[in-house]
Design a protein around this nucleic acid. Structure first.
Lengths: 234, 234
DNA sequence: CCAAAAGTGTTTCACGTACACCCATGC
DNA sequence: GCATGGGTGTACGTGAAACACTTTTGG
């Protein structure tokens, strides 16, 4: 089967940059990204962002979800469009334009498993990355920058942390992404004054120290506030 | 001549949303957008965003600049990527994925002239638009929304107004884009305190009224401040 | 009793906001 | 002299930032 056109056409792909925190071990504060090891050429054996070709009867967002699911097993991820990248020689085979998507997930909720044309799947710390296939290092940098911009006006911590978390964990997350220390009292006051956190039952977190109160994020309230023009700011 | 592939391929286009203020008549406060009237089918005779197919040997940004120049005569415009749109049935002919770009220009510096497959070119007030071809009304809404977001943290006024302008004009621009009235004294205080405006010689602007001081934007200073982590906020 | 992290208040300062009057100019 | 827009100062409230000690728990 083949398809013929009057003019040459670029191939169209999607790529997914999925970020996660290790929400099982909250002392591990590295931000991680999901990569696959390519099975076939080009860049066989090389690590790359999950992604692939867009089918004619699916939207771009659908293609991104599908490829992510097929290659890594991650399903029902809320992907957001990042940008389109169309440098002429970014793929050695032919002209390929890619639409990049990004997402934030809780690592513990995801069972990454290699499938499709991925030899392996793994989480990598964004500050300790291998050389990736194609221009994927560049795409990843763009996504990381977008994340840093986004953290200031969207409650991303609440997508990255476990369901229940301490204020200290939330503060560590913000310190990691914003890359500066925050005052404990000011941070607590500010985040609590938004009224988006709900206290849950206490749990001992570490040895040899006072137990901390756990909170969860009030999604419904956040949605209500958003509709009224509320903007989260950090 | 024809081109054959193993899998069917979407066509790839770019579309440009070019905004401008009428900087000759600053009492005309409407924000305008550049549209072309389509010559051929589909949507012949219908107004649409300038744009067209991406060639295989050019980047996406290049395609956007080229199509804009070919169809409207506008050249050397700094286009920024907005998003990729790939709904399955957005073009009645076949699957077409488009990359939307947007830009801000001074209307007086542009000589819009219909060419290529555009029957006519014209500026339309964004608040009084006709029904556009394809999903171009939707793309335009996205671009307008992006502009409103952007106005708050980038000095866009300085791209839209003439080289020298009064504080009143700048305020009118912000009121138009932010869609709310601003206090004159507070606006002047805030914008002047940033130190990005330079006084130039006075000129009488209107009849029957006191002459107003003109300012120009200090681009060099803005660039220096940006490097030091300054963020413009309105 | 010691180590380790949790939790808590106050002061200061900058900034946003609200608000009203006189001034210069052209007709 | 009047209509038109230009230009100016002050008071108040909110929110960011800086800062140090006591409490609880496990070992």
């Amino acid at each position: 089967m083949s398809f013929t056109y009057k003019h040459p056409r670029a191939a169209l792909t999607v790529d997914c940059v999925v970020f996660a925190l290790n929400d099982r071990d909250l002392n591990d504060r590295d931000l991680n990204v999901l990569l696959i090891q390519r099975n076939g050429p080009p860049f066989a054996g090389c690590w790359a962002l999950p992604g692939g070709f867009v089918e004619l009867d699916e939207t771009l967002a659908h293609a991104a979800s599908r490829e992510l699911r097929e290659e890594t097993g991650l399903d029902s991820i809320r992907l957001e469009q990042l940008c389109a990248i169309g440098d002429v020689d970014r793929d050695p085979r032919e002209r390929v334009v890619t639409i990049a998507y990004h997402a934030l997930v809780r690592m513990s909720e995801q069972q990454a498993q290699a499938a499709s044309d991925a030899r392996a799947v793994a989480w990598f710390a964004v500050n300790d990355l291998p050389n990736l296939a194609f221009d994927h290092n560049k795409i990843l940098s763009l996504a990381y920058q977008r994340l840093r911009d986004k953290v200031r006006y969207q409650p991303i911590g609440l997508e990255l942390l476990p369901e229940r978390f301490t204020l200290r964990h939330l503060q560590h997350l913000y310190e990691a992404v914003l890359d500066r220390p925050l005052d404990k009292r000011d941070f607590r006051r500010k985040i609590l004054s938004m009224g988006l956190l709900v206290e849950v039952d206490e749990i001992k977190t570490d040895v040899a120290c006072r137990e901390a109160r756990l909170y969860r994020f009030d999604k419904a309230k956040y949605a209500r506030l958003l509709k009224r023009g509320f903007t989260f700011e950090m």
